[in-house]
Write a protein that binds this DNA or RNA. Structure first.
Lengths: 335, 335
DNA sequence: CTGAAAGCGCTAACAT
DNA sequence: ATGTTAGCGCTTTCAG
């Protein structure tokens, strides 16, 4: 049996409560403090967290739920969240949904079950009403990163995919492009729709005709981008001078496809991505893209959580971070 | 106040223990079962995990500690661990050391504190005696992934870096290379030494002279690989026909450096990496490398943990997984 | 500044 | 199959 606080008290010639107080940072007479420290060492005492949490109804843990922990975007965001929460004395415990394919909703139980004091849920997929409704019922702190299904009551932070893509098109227009193809993401991702909307809005503002035959859908992957580009390249009415892949992975695949077909980027056409993943600076040519402020997203979500934990009331927030365009060598000016 | 098991019992006209038994999957009379289910729903009851764990001294959690959760290798391994442990009814909780820079050793407390039933620690850095000594003291299940500081009592799994590199050199030799430069990793990584040892051993076996001026140390990064290659290219006695970068990231940086200096791979010299990260198939030329069986590593570690949890005694194991060479286009045959 | 005592919500004998 | 009871190890009034 492990030593308990009672054993420590006995050994240090004091009471459980005094030991408990000491353990929780309250003042204790110098003499007893020394005795307690001594006893703890001799007994190799470790507080039992479950007992502590049961008695105090606080865990000092915050739960982070992501779709797939081995995904660059998620892991970058959550690693920033951890920095912030740690500074406030909270531990992060991470949960990855990929392997157990549990619904996000099921993780809400951890709040009721006393496993965590708050929950940050990170997902770039479209969320359903069901989840949002459940969240609104819950008397515990929750922050969403990504889609909020349009709900104006659940706190969330996301990247501004719309304006990010809008800017990309503007840039292309500025350097003379009027014929811009687009490789879209999967329908299940919230960003797909937002980015596409930004693309179309920019086209409209700039009086560029929207041409459905220059749009192809794919799945975020390099392989997908490769295939998509091949399709684009084989369509009858080719004639675009630039293509926007709605994420960098697909752009990298597209680049390879272009090369395989004997085209040169940016001489034959310009190519743009979205995300600014680490690899994008290292492909040839360097990929022009929109940088996602992943650290800022994580940081903001964490700060919101900390505030919620302190005050328990916070006025509704949905914070959208702007992307930052990073210009490398994959676009050619036509003017 | 949240409803408790007592409330459920009252509402269902039975006793706490019956409810508890039902909750834990034991048989209960049909009639009472229905009443309990009904009561749970009506009250929106959720069991308190802390109380449950305190009373049962089991958490059904296993803790996974990694250096940096946003690192591809770690996240790939742990996401496989999760698959296995979930199948056995255990939840994984992940901890990332990067942000709080706590020593691995400190995480051992979670075992004493009743937060987790077992711990899998993943790190590719050299571990110190201190940690290993502490682990040997501990009466709880622990599995190490990565370095074991040569200890023959702590269960661990790792990749066979030595033979992996050995094979790479053999391959190069086979296709006619006798002059092979080497970009090493940082001294702090255990793999650096093992891979270097494999390189030197292979050289010796194949009667190739070891030339210190063809060795340069770097830090695993693309930037580092770039610099390293530049150094290699500028040294007086250039004359190698191949270079092994001890990881793919550095190889990708090296490739860029070669291009920037006007060299072509593999025409001017061959290039080999180690790891087989996803990007390696997409650089130009495709990178020949040694694939790390990350999933297998994670799976094995998880299985060992499950066995330890069941039997609490297991004969000492250190399992080394062989790498698999994947040949792409970055090497040229000289014969 | 300290001690006594109650209780957090659940499990696990034990008895029936 | 079910109810009674005694903890699990800690925090937290409340008195002093």
């Amino acid at each position: 049996m492990n030593p308990t606080i009672k054993d420590v008290a006995k050994q240090a010639n004091t009471s459980k409560s005094t030991v408990s107080r000491f353990l929780n940072g309250q003042r204790v007479k110098k003499k007893t403090e020394e005795a307690i420290v001594q006893a703890i060492k001799e007994l190799n005492y470790h507080p039992n967290m479950n007992a502590r949490r049961l008695a105090s109804s606080r865990t000092l843990n915050i739960g982070i739920v992501v779709d797939d922990i081995s995904n660059y975007f998620y892991s970058t965001i959550i690693s920033e969240i951890e920095v912030i929460t740690n500074q406030h004395g909270y531990q992060c415990v991470f949960f990855s949904r990929k392997s157990n394919k549990k619904q996000e909703k099921e993780y809400l139980n951890m709040l009721y079950e006393g496993e965590v004091d708050g929950l940050i849920m990170v997902s770039f997929y479209k969320r359903d009403e069901d989840l949002i409704a459940a969240i609104q019922e819950i008397p515990y702190p929750i922050i969403l990163i990504g889609d909020d299904a349009g709900c104006k009551e659940v706190h969330s932070v996301d990247v501004d995919n719309y304006s990010g893509t809008y800017e990309l098109v503007e840039y292309l227009h500025q350097i003379g492009h009027r014929n811009i193809a687009y490789i879209a993401g999967p329908d299940t991702a919230a960003a797909t729709h937002q980015r596409m909307a930004g693309y179309r809005a920019a086209l409209q503002t700039l009086s560029i005709e929207f041409r459905p035959e220059w749009i192809v859908s794919s799945n975020w992957s390099k392989e997908g981008g490769y295939e998509a580009m091949m399709q684009l390249l084989e369509r009858e009415r080719r004639g675009f001078t630039a293509v926007i892949a709605s994420n960098d992975e697909m752009a990298i695949g597209a680049l390879r496809a272009a090369n395989d077909r004997g085209f040169h980027v940016p001489q034959d056409f310009s190519l743009i991505g979205f995300d600014d993943i680490p690899m994008s600076a290292w492909v040839n040519p360097g990929l022009t893209t929109a940088n996602q402020p992943l650290h800022q997203i994580g940081r903001r979500a964490a700060e919101m959580m900390m505030e919620l934990l302190k005050t328990s009331e916070m006025k509704y927030q949905r914070h959208l971070f702007k992307t930052n365009m990073v210009i490398r060598q994959s676009c050619r000016s036509l003017v």
